[in-house]
Amino acid sequence: MTVLTTTKAPVTVAPARRRQPGRGNPRARRELLAGYGFLVPWLIGFFGLTLGPMVMSLYLSFTRYNIFTPPEFIGLANYVRMFTDDPVFIKSVKVTLTYVLAGTPLKLAAALGVALLLNYFTKGSGFFRSAFYAPSLIGASVSIAIVWRAMFGTDGPVDSALGLIGLDLGGWVGNVDLAIPMMICLTIWQFGAPMVIFLAGLQGIPQELYEAAEVDGASSLAKFRHVTLPMLSSVIFFNLLLETIHAFQVFGSAFIISNGSGSPGGMLNFMTLYMYKRGFADMQMGYAAAIAWVVLIFVAIVAALLFRSSKAWVHYAGETR
């Protein structure tokens, strides 16, 4: 968040700021009134349904609260327990990080690869684009989770197909080592949304750049390396940020695929899932709130790191040209 606003770019700023919004200025007062007037619904929602509950859950995270008796303040005990006396939580952190750090880059690589392929075509790419985008809309539904279990089960389509090329892995669903890869396949399957964004980015790259590169005798690879990638870096960054945050919040599909259990061997017990179980099944609301806050902190850290690093590798049009 912090860095969200640091990359200065010439946006569609108003045609000169007319008057400073000063006190006593009737125009400014009217604007103030209008501004907050239009924001009334959003303000109620923000304070009532987002900020208020957040503060409350932060408070709960320092309590022992079983929902029947009033919350009992216990300081940092929940956080201490999490990191010192709860191997299941530690495992859920590992599982979540593995999923996020492996799944997101792979998904984006797939999205970029297919976007390049589609960009190569002019005719018919609309059909493919739509077909590839469809999974993004339905990927989290109950039915897809059931399908996924079947796809990756023993003697299922995936097992059989791999058997044909001599890889006999058996079912993935019950395999401790393959459960996360199975989830990663599910997220890669939904590569359509970032792909569409990449595609839009590719179509926005000025043709002259490629022509100039060709004049210099650049190979296809060189063109990709020196024109496409830099021109696309802001889009890559945007996708990376959104997909990473999204991946941290994986819940529905893991919940449904493991039937709420987080099995096999806790390999699908993502932090969000564990939080839900602690809160709603075990009624350890304080502990659950603490887990939720740790998830939030992880998301904030990763987002901040991404923004920091972006200065080094994200190029903007002005710099390249």
Partner: peptide, 11 residues
């Protein structure tokens, strides 16, 4: 029954 097979059929 190996647990990995049971995981596949759960619940």
């Amino acid at each position: 029954v190996p647990q990995s097979k049971l995981e596949e059929v759960y619940p």
